[in-house]
């Protein structure tokens, strides 16, 4: 399984990763506020991740680490 990790403490909830995800499996977690006071982004369905890293490429705050199962 591929793995996307969010350093949620750095996330500002801008949502650019959510828009960029071709599988539409990212979302802002509106139940949570991080230290900065933002709803951080997270993955809703890890199984569907194709490790394309488009989310990470669009992230302005280097929140996202992407690992591919090989």
């Amino acid at each position: 399984m591929n793995k996307v990790t969010f350093r949620t403490e750095l996330c500002k909830g801008c949502g650019l990763c959510v828009d960029a995800c071709p599988k539409k499996i990212l979302a802002l977690n509106t139940d949570v506020l991080n230290e900065k006071g933002y709803h951080p982004a997270g993955i809703t369905d890890q199984d569907k991740c194709i490790a394309c890293a488009m989310c990470a490429m669009m992230c302005p705050d280097v929140v996202i680490k992407v690992e591919k199962n090989i």
């Binding site: 793995k3 490790a51 890293a53 990470a56 490429m57 280097v62 996202i64 680490k65 992407v66 690992e67 591919k68 199962n69 090989i70």
Partner: peptide, 8 residues
């Protein structure tokens, strides 16, 4: 697992 994206 291979890291395909991380902080430089």
């Amino acid at each position: 697992m291979a890291v395909v994206f991380d902080k430089p």
